[in-house]
Write a protein that binds this DNA or RNA. Sequence first.
DNA 1: TGTCAAGAAAAAATCGATATTTGGACTGTG
DNA 2: CACAGTCCAAATATCGATTTTTTCTTGACA
Lengths: 232, 232
Amino acid sequence: MATTPAKPTRVHEVYDRIRGSLLGGELPPGSKLKLNDFAGQYAVSLSVVREAVTRLAGEGLVEASPQRGFAVAQLTISDLQDLTRTRVLIETLALAESIKHGDLAWEGSVIATHHTLAHTPMMTAQGHVDPAFTLAHRAFHHTLLAGCGVSRLEGIATGLRDCAELYQHWSQELAGDTGRDVAAEHRLIAELTVARDEAGATQALREHIERTTAALVRYAEGLDGTDERALA
Amino acid sequence: MATTPAKPTRVHEVYDRIRGSLLGGELPPGSKLKLNDFAGQYAVSLSVVREAVTRLAGEGLVEASPQRGFAVAQLTISDLQDLTRTRVLIETLALAESIKHGDLAWEGSVIATHHTLAHTPMMTAQGHVDPAFTLAHRAFHHTLLAGCGVSRLEGIATGLRDCAELYQHWSQELAGDTGRDVAAEHRLIAELTVARDEAGATQALREHIERTTAALVRYAEGLDGTDERALA
DNA sequence: TGTCAAGAAAAAATCGATATTTGGACTGTG
DNA sequence: CACAGTCCAAATATCGATTTTTTCTTGACA
């Protein structure tokens, strides 16, 4: 799924940067992507921006509507629930496979990435999410699933995870996920995984995933009853 | 995941037609896509072809290598095995969910699409695969998973299935999948599904998926021992 | 005869410009 | 004052041409 081989073509650079903006929450969900602005900003032609954005649409981070341009994927409660259920099913599946088939090196990398994660503070002094934390968090979860040895499954899980990061970002900014010890959740997942406790680890992962969704849904339902309403 | 709303834009037309060529097996796996030829053939500009092909690359039907253009996805034994394992895991998962949550209307549509499939001959008089069969086959398998009510999961499963169709096409042409009663397999899956026999149905589906792979792998290994070798 | 390199041909990436479409402002009417 | 139709500006989709990069050809040299 990832395509970052040797020579960074213009399209790829632009793709990466827009992708970063999306996941970094610089662009509000549902807002239209102004291709012209991007073209100016990155000093490239429209065609380049277009192709980059088309790829992002393929990943689901961006929605394309013919004749009407592109927009940051709209976040709705029903889509969030759909995404969450999909992630729970697929990520627990992949984790179970990893626990069954992962080798010692994988076990080691789980411990290593968890260690890094555990020692990276989540918030900056300004109360924003630390980019380093995002990185470490992503690496940890990716490693968890990387032991299954089925690269397509891994790729799919990663893609879903990226989509969820859009929600995650806005949830942390908006809903402020209170009273939750995320670090403890991670520790539990890591320990059970390394202990090869398939049932325990998958359940811990399921709860970890569902908890964020629950917080966001609670927040959103406080605002409005409909499922189709945008979250932000 | 599918984007076929209202107004067929040029890109979308070209996308559809190239996609059809790929799944219909008109283009051999691994062969380079000559964008210029497409542009001429469909009487559109290069940009249009480029964007269409970019999307196909996002689905995995086409491989993109920077500065080197696009090629029909290369079929290798190891990728086939990876794909098969992924499909088995995800499709059985989706089927299990469907059996658990599917309603009566879904049950009916399973019966209906199976009925259609059962009465559509697989081969034409010329010994080729009948396009109508392909259609019916696709509809049946899609319906099986459509009861789960999780649209993303469905979309993922459909995407994997499309990738597999590439292999399937060439397998039927090359390896001739002997001594196999595919119709009976379909009937069994349909019956167990409607009977809400989760374990039985998922196992039948697993075997159905794995059987095609096994035939192709046997065929390919007769030719060459390496996993990375192209199948065709 | 095999290897390597310069140069030509082909293909890919990118650009700048044009044709269409969309969304909204404007205006005249009931 | 609400509403419908028209017109205009912004944005999208598409095109044709230019710039790079890769690939192929060919010929000199060891």
